[in-house]
Design a protein around this nucleic acid. Structure first.
Ligand SMILES: [Mg+2]
Length: 228
DNA sequence: GCGACAG
DNA sequence: ATCTTGTCGC
């Protein structure tokens, strides 16, 4: 798939937010279930190997079968260590390199991290969406910012994630009696539709299938070239 | 100044 | 993200 900028730092965060709003007004957003969505993508990255190289993976699954139809990987050295709030700048280069190789343009991309639920309201999912002009959903395993009321233990339960008086996403119980996932819009999608699509792709597990498959692919790429 | 803090 | 095998609970 094609990219519209090469890196997140080709544009300032405030400019990026404005551009994102413009696009939201002129481009179709992700339909609520069960409309014509056919391809779901997932992205993830491996830990660094001994020489500092990480492997990124982009996978495409068909919906609603959730069967994988394409897998691409890329490798590179992140520009700096993990710093909360700056994950976009660390992970984007390798993730975009993997994404760029996809022949299938997905209808929505699942991201292992936050979207709107970010101190500056522009997390990794927002960057990836803007750079690819594709709807994205941030689906993280833990909270970066914000808080929520406790939610019922059954799968499907969800509660708004709020930060400084703003609704930035939701805590979503994707499976019975497990810790919730933290879902926030990345690009061209709203909170409720994000929740819907996360719940529609979790096949009874905690993680959405696109993210799971991407994690596996990145891990395979990691240990195939390394020993471990 | 202190603590919190996606991966 | 990692340190880490078997083990407990649904
Ligand atoms: Mg990850």
């Amino acid at each position: 798939m094609k990219l519209h900028h090469l890196h997140p730092w080709d544009i300032s965060t405030s400019q990026a937010r404005e551009l994102q709003k413009e696009l939201a007004g002129s481009v179709s957003t992700v339909p609520a279930l069960p409309d014509k969505v056919r391809y779901l993508a997932g992205l993830d990255i491996s830990p660094a190997d001994a020489s500092g190289v990480v492997r990124g993976a982009a996978v495409v699954l068909e919906y609603p079968s959730l069967e994988p139809v394409e897998v691409k990987t890329a490798g590179g050295k992140p520009p700096f260590p993990y710093i909360p709030g700056l994950l976009s700048f660390r992970e984007s280069p390798v993730l975009l390199e993997a994404l760029e190789q996809l022949e299938t343009h997905p209808d929505v991309i699942y991201i292992d991290g936050q979207g709107l639920a970010h101190p500056r309201r522009f997390g990794l999912a927002c960057h990836i969406g803007l750079l690819t002009r594709t709807p994205t959903i941030g689906c993280a395993k833990s909270i970066l910012v914000g808080s929520h009321h406790e939610l019922p233990p059954s799968a499907g339960a969800h509660s708004r994630l709020e930060h400084k008086g703003e609704e930035v996403g939701a805590a979503v119980r994707t499976r019975d009696k497990v810790r919730p996932m933290y879902v926030s819009p990345g690009h061209l999608i709203d909170i409720d539709t994000s929740i819907e699509w996360v719940l529609a792709s979790c096949r009874g597990r905690r993680m959405p299938e696109p993210t799971r498959k991407a994690h596996e692919a990145a891990d395979r790429a990691h240990r195939s070239q390394i020993g471990s």
